[in-house]
Computed example of a mutant assay.
Amino acid sequence: MTGTRENPARRWSRLQGVDLLAAALGHPSYAGRVALVSSFGTESAVLLHMVAALEPATPVLFIDTLKHFPQTLAHRDLLVRRLGLRDVRSVRPAEAVLARVDSAGLLHREDADWCCHLRKSEPLGQALESFAAWITGRKRFQGGLRTDLATAELEASSGRLKLNPLAGWSEQEVEGYRVRHDLPAHPLQARGYRSVGCMPCTRAVGAGEASRAGRWPGIDKTECGIHLPGAPS
C-alpha cells in the first residue's frame, strides 16, 4: 500500500491529538485517503471536532448496526450539523445476510461475536477497502486490549495505517476538551452511560466501574472485533 515502505507508524509514533491528525491528513501519500471511523458515542465529539477543524471533508464512517439507541442517531445528526462534517457515510450490514442469518434480530443473544462480525467487522472491512488509513477513537484508559495502544500502527493483514490520536489521553482530558470547546454531550451520558454501543448490549455503569464495563454485560467480551488482529481486512 502506498506510503507503508517508509513506515509512518514508526515516524509518527510520538505524535498525538491534532498533531498526528494534521500529519496524516496532509501527507502526500494519505491526503484524501484517510477515513475517520466514529461510533458517535459519548467521547466521539472530541475527535470529530479535531478532524472537522483540519479538514471537514474527511470521510466519516458510521457503522450503523441497525441496533443503535435513538439517542445516538440524534447525537450523530446534531454533531454533523454543528461541526459542518461534509462526508458522513453510514456503513450497514447487507440486508440479504441479515435476512439469512439474523432475520429475527436476536443473534446477539445467541452469539454476540458473530453478531458483531456481521453487523460491524464485515461491513467496515468492505468500506475501508478504498482507504490507505483510518482513524479510531480508542484510548489506553479504556483498558483491556487497549492498555498498551500505540498512537500509530500498521495493520498486519492489510498494511493499512491505523491512527489512534487520543490513545494517551485520560478520560478527564477528553471530557475537558469537550467542555472547553462547548461540544454537545451524548444524551445518555447524564444517565450513566460512559460508553455507548448497540442498545441490546449496553448498560449504564455504576460508581467505581470502568468506563466500558457496560458493554456486553454478563458475557466474556470486551471488543466488538473491528480492532482485533485480522479484522477488518
Rank of each mutant, 00 (worst) to 15 (best):
S103C: 13
L20T: 05
G41H: 03
Q16V: 04
G159W: 11
V205R: 05
F62G: 01
D102Q: 10
L54S: 08
E155Q: 14
E129W: 01
V46N: 06
G32R: 09
E122G: 03
L118V: 13
D87S: 12
R215C: 04
L149S: 07
L61Q: 09
A94Q: 14
H227Q: 04
C198H: 01
D113H: 12
G225E: 03
D77N: 11
L166E: 03
S211K: 05
S44N: 05
E171N: 12
A112R: 02
K221D: 13
A31F: 05
L21N: 02
R215G: 01
L145H: 14
A57R: 14
D111P: 08
L107A: 10
A152F: 05
R194D: 02
S195E: 05
P70Y: 02
A210F: 05
I226G: 00
G41I: 11
E129P: 00
A99R: 14
L85Q: 00
C115A: 10
E173M: 10
G159T: 10
L48Y: 04
A213E: 08
Q189R: 13
R119C: 08
L15G: 09
V196Q: 02
L161G: 12
G17Y: 04
Q189S: 14
R76E: 11
D148K: 13
Q142M: 12
T151P: 01
A9Y: 04
D19N: 14
G17H: 10
R191A: 13
Q189H: 12
D87F: 04
V196M: 05
R33F: 09
A185N: 10
I63E: 00
G168S: 07
A45F: 03
N7F: 12
D220R: 15
A185K: 12
K162G: 08
T147N: 08
I219N: 06
P184W: 07
G214F: 00
A45P: 00
H108A: 10
A207V: 15
C115H: 07
R14F: 08
H186R: 09
G218A: 03
C198E: 09
V46Y: 02
L228Q: 13
A167R: 01
C201I: 09
